[in-house]
Structures are given as C-alpha cells and as structure tokens.
Design a protein around this nucleic acid. Structure first.
Length: 609
RNA sequence: GCACUCGUAGCUCAGGUGGAUAGAGCGUUGGCCUCCGAAGCCAAAGGCCACUGGUUCAAGUCCAGUCGAGUGCACCA
C-alpha cells in the first residue's frame, strides 16, 4: 500500500475513535506550507460530531498512528499535516517498483477508423494518438486491451475513389504512396462539374463494394493507412470491416435483441407507421424527438443500426464474424482482420469486452449516445455504463476546416516528414557534432514524432486544436522535446556516474543525507501510479502528458538548484560519498519514471539530443 | 428552436471525488554556463477564474439562470 493510502487509513481510524466515519482526502500541502501531506478531514469530523475543526485537528494530531516513513504530524489550524522522513521516503521510492492499478477484465478500444479512400490528414492524427495512448495506459493499469480499427468499406467515399480511378483511367505508378494516389482521384472527381451525371456509375461501385467484389482494392488502401499509423507508433489487434459486420448478420442479431425490449415498437400509425423504432427517452432525457428509427418502413436498416450491432458484438452479445491474419506490425505481431473466408472465433478471442471505448470526434456525439442508449434499451445497464465515447474536438488547419476536396489539408505523412526534417535542421544548428552521428536520423525521428504526438494529446480532448506548424513542431516549452531532453540529461548523469565507478542502484547510499530538494523530486516520481489511475478514470491521456511535463519541470528545477551563494546545490557527481550514491539511485528511478511515463503516451526517448 | 461541449493571464492551456496565497508554456523585461547537457534554470510584469444568484464552515470546481463561442439535431451515410 502506498504512503497516501496508509495516511488515509490512519486518519480515518483516528476519526473513528472520535466517533466519526469520514472519507479523508490526503493531499499535498501547498508550497510554502509546513509538512508534505495534509488532510482537511477535521472539517468533516466537526460536521458529524460537532465541535471546532481546529480543536479536532489538534486532537487527531495526538491520537493518529503514524505509518512508517512519517516522522511527525501537526495541526495547522483545521488542517492536519504530516511530515515525511526524507531518507526513508526517498529510499522507498527508489527501491519499490511502481504499484500500478491492478484492474481486470477486457477493454475494446476502437480508433483510427479512417475512410479507406484517401490518405490520413493531420486531423486523423489526433484520433490515432488518443486511441493508441489510451490502449497503452489501460494495459499498464492491468486490463486486457484489444484495439480495433473499423473499415468503412461500403461507404460512399470509398466508392467515389474507386470510381474515379476507373472513370479517369488512372494508373498507379507503384512509387507514390497508394493512399495518396487514390486520394487524388477522389479530389479530381469532386472538382469535376460533370459529377452529378456520374452518379449511376458511383452507385454501381457502391453495390459492388457491398457485394465484396472490390475487397482487394480497398485492402490496398488499408495497408497504406497502416504504414502511416505504424510509423506514428499505433498498433492494432483487429480490423473490423463494415461489409463483414453486415455480412455476419449483426444488423439482424442486434435488432432481434432490441425487439424483445419494452422500449421498441412497430407503430401502425403516425409519422413512424411501418418502421421499427426505439424510444430512448429513458436513457437520453430532454430530446425533442425521443424515437429513433432503426428499420425504415421499406424494410431497410438505418445506419445507426449497424453501429448498434457492432457495439453489441464488441460486448459479446452474439458471435458470427470470421477472422484471418491481415498484416504483421513492426513489432512482429499479427494484425487480424474480419473476412468472409476467415475462420470462426471458437475461443471468443475477439470482442467479449467488459468495457468499450470508441474514439470518435465530437460531431458523432449524438449517434454515439444513441449507440450507448441502445444498450439500455437492450436492458444491459452495466454495459451501457461501460460504453464510453472518447469524444474529441476536430482539428482545424491554420484556422480553417480541413477539407481534402478544397485543398485545405496536410497529410499525416507530410506532417511526420516535416517534423523530422525540422528537427534534424535544429540539431545541426545547436548540436552539429551530434548531427554528424550515424544515428542522427533516428534521434530526429524520435523527437519529431514525439513532438507531434504530444501536441495532439497534451490538452483535454474537448479542446479544439488548430494545427499550426510552429506550434505542433515546437521544440521548447510545453513539448515532448522538453521532456525528452530532461530524460536524456538524467541518463547522461547516470552514465557519467557509472564511468566514474559509482553505484547507481543505491549501494552505499546515505539516505539520511538527502535534503528537502531531493524529497520534492522523489514525491513527483512517486505520483505515477495515481496518475495512471486518474487517466483511466477520466478516459483521457492528457493527464499523463501533463504529468510528464511536471516530472521534467521538477527534475530541471532540482538539477539547476543553487545554494545561497549561487553554487550548484544538487550536483550529483560532486556530492559527498553516500549522498552521491543516494542521488544516483534517485536519478536512476527518475529515468525509469520517464521511460514508463512516455511509453504510456507512445513517445520514445532519443539516445542523445 | 432543442440538445451537447466550452468560456481561467495578451495568446495556447493545466487546475482528482469542493479545501490552505489560482499554476505552466509562448510572448515581453532582466539575470544564470571556470559547476553532472543552456532544447535548460531563476526573477519581474501580467487574473472581479464570462456574468448574476444559490448551496456550503469553504466554490475556478457543485446547482439555476443570463451572455458569448463551437458542434449536432432526416424513415441520409
């Protein structure tokens, strides 16, 4: 149990003795206040048993049992503050592995789901990075994670691109990236004044797509998309094709389940006569129209019915899809795909989620709420509860709405190329020697991609992002390179320490020689597990990104600390023996915290900067 | 019109389940490399936390309303 949890128990036990049952919050004391951790629990106790909070805090200070590692407690007015034993605390942080949350169960995360008709643009980056980071974080918290990527292969967009290729007689040269080439046909078609007359041809392609005749064409785009996503660091377990969702009868299965619900009906009169409708008012209050049509009066299904069926399948409400390998990712793991000629999933390997997270932009808020409500309609309240829409605001480009058709767009591939190019240029300028090293490109890759990923997830998902080169590729300030630089610097200290023959594992450490400055840093390092727990709780990786910044800031401040005479106060290698070993061990732990934290958001640390 | 999201420093953003003087980055100004990496650090300036009311010992945080911005509201996909 970590120290804060022990403090919480100690305070609550002491409160019990005074006759009050409270939920004691343990927080860090504000900078400048006495103590390390504190609690305002006396307010709550005073409320239940009466009395003066300050007096109660004083009483608690007398009776509370101090856990190991806490050397002193004192009341500061109504607050109860604890003082940690610096040496014992830092030693604990250094020697104990992180106690990550231990969640169980399976979560299915759907992300990317880009129309297979043209290349990804910078707006898609946000989706991929959010989803991939969530997958990493949930995995670290102990859950089984399955990442799915939905392929809308029967939609209008895919049809238009394929039609354009045929119509204009376009030939792929085998050199240009396939998705970029295909996208050019799409753009050309949509700029063509004759497009309205071409409608019958497009419709024919749509029918052929639905029949699965053009699967091979679509697969080429999907492979090209995977190249982009792999480069970003994303990984997938399963590609779920819309044609397979439909072909596996998920629509019917889903509607069958819903038909047994008291919230669905086949009205015989009124505006919905002849249609199959679902009343979601019990799950989505305040709607002007609470009836959702699932099957039209002509018998055809509405689009949301597909989403509902797919969602039900993710939760394991029925089976039916077949699967086969599709590709191998850069780590050598197999990416599976749904396929009509695949094998049945007899082991319940895919789907069967306890929780489903759909990473989709906020324009889909309403349909996603309907999907969620449909689980309520199906009388599956716990699944409804764990049906999460990770909604994020769309990305604009230099203030304009991204539109491939209007040419207001930057591809994800170009953004990554540019990021690496700019990084390399900066490297040549500020560290010419390093830029001559043979791994200079790899260094630039890690920094450039890190910068992009970080820019996409440092803010809350509900924030709108306006993609601007200077901002997305900035190398100082609140950026990935700032954090990476700190991590590299930490590694550099460790290397120098080892070269000098010092132990970095705490051997020979004099923990009690550590001053408060080192305690501040150790406290920051110790926070990682609760950060992971919070990120899982709020379903957003921005919490982890912000923590990574805090960690780097704390380390830089500590590294540069000066004493009253303006001399370095925390120089590790020049510290006295014993203190030096303690600091080296702390820096080693910090470096590990950087690695684990950045890995949670898919950012790699370069060998040097 | 209805619903959802948002409104914190000039700009871009952090601020667990309410708790002690509201924090960063960019930009501005001024400092810090005979000392482990200056892509760094320190300091200054910059805030009626949109507004009004309410709940509470305590509100940036919760509730109601107002104003402003964005998005979505088809037997479309």
């Amino acid at each position: 149990m970590d120290l804060k949890a022990q403090l919480k128990t100690a305070v609550e036990t002491a409160a019990q003795q005074l006759g009050a049952t409270v939920d004691a919050a343990i927080q860090e004391t504000p900078a400048g206040k006495a103590g390390d951790y504190g609690t305002p629990a006396a307010f709550l106790i005073a409320k239940t048993i009466g009395g003066n909070p300050a007096q109660i805090a004083a009483q608690l200070a007398q009776t509370v049992q101090l856990p190991q590692g806490i050397k002193k407690v004192e009341a500061a007015g109504p607050f109860l503050n604890f003082f940690v034993d610096v040496g014992a605390f830092v030693r604990g942080v250094v020697e104990k592995p992180f106690e990550m949350p231990r969640l169980s169960g399976k979560v299915v995360i759907e992300h990317t789901s880009v129309n297979p008709n043209k290349e990804l643009h910078v707006g898609h980056l946000r989706n991929v990075v959010l989803g991939d980071s969530m997958a990493r974080i949930f995995r670290a918290a102990g859950q089984t994670v399955e990442v799915q990527n939905y392929i809308d292969d029967t939609g209008r967009q895919a049809a238009e691109s394929i039609f354009a290729v045929n119509h204009y007689g376009l030939k792929w040269d085998g050199v240009q990236k396939y998705d970029h080439w295909l996208g050019e046909g799409y753009v050309r078609l949509n700029a063509d004044p004759a497009k309205p007359e071409l409608e019958p041809g497009i419709r024919e392609i749509m029918h052929r797509l639905e029949a699965g005749e053009l699967r091979a064409e679509v697969e080429k785009v999907v492979h090209a998309h995977l190249v982009t996503c792999f480069r970003l660091g994303a990984r997938y377990d399963l590609l779920a094709w819309e044609s397979d969702v439909v072909g596996s009868g998920f629509l019917g299965h889903g509607l069958n389940i819903l038909e047994g619900s008291p919230f669905t009906s086949w009205p015989t009169e009124g505006k919905f006569a002849g249609a199959f409708v679902m009343d979601v008012s019990a799950f989505m209050p305040n709607l002007e129209e609470s009836n959702v049509v699932l099957r039209r009066s002509d018998g055809t299904a509405m689009y949301v019915a597909k989403d509902v069926g797919y969602q039900f399948w993710k939760f394991g409400l029925f089976e039916g899809m077949k699967f086969k390998p599709f590709a191998t990712d850069p780590d050598g793991r197999t990416v599976w795909t749904s396929a009509p000629d695949g094998q049945p999933d007899t082991e319940g390997r895919f789907g069967h989620a306890d929780e489903v997270i759909n990473v989709i932009d906020s324009r889909q808020d309403h349909p996603q709420k309907i999907v969620r409500a449909s689980l309520g309609v199906a009388e599956q309240p716990e699944k409804e509860d764990r049906s999460i829409h990770l909604s994020y605001a769309f990305v604009t480009l230099e203030g304009q709405t991204i539109s491939g058709r209007k040419g207001v767009t930057v591809s994800a591939d170009a953004a990554m190329d540019e990021a690496q190019k700019r990084t390399l240029a900066v490297l040549a300028e500020i560290n010419p020697e390093l830029s001559q090293r043979e791994d200079a490109n790899e260094i630039a890759r890690r920094i450039g991609l890190g910068a992009i990923r970080f820019a996409m997830l440092k803010a809350e998902p509900t924030r709108k992002i306006d993609f601007r080169w200077e901002q997305a590729l900035a190398l100082n300030g609140d950026t990935a390179p700032y954090i990476q630089y700190a991590a590299v610097r930490a590694a550099s200290i460790l290397r120098k320490g080892q070269e000098a023959g010092y132990a970095i594992d705490g051997t020979g450490a004099d923990w009690d020689a550590l001053p408060d400055a080192d305690l501040t840093l150790a406290k920051q390092v110790a926070k990682l597990p609760e950060i992971v727990a919070q990120s899982v709780h709020v379903h957003s990786p921005h919490v982890v990104a912000q923590y990574a910044l805090d960690l780097a800031t704390s380390f830089n401040a500590w590294f540069n600390a000066k004493d009253k005479k303006g001399k370095p106060a925390t120089n590790v290698l020049q510290s006295e023996e014993g203190l030096r070993e303690a600091r080296l061990a702390l820096v080693a732990r910090l470096r590990q915290a950087f690695e684990e934290t950045l890995d949670l958001i898919g950012i790699e640390i370069p060998a040097a900067m």
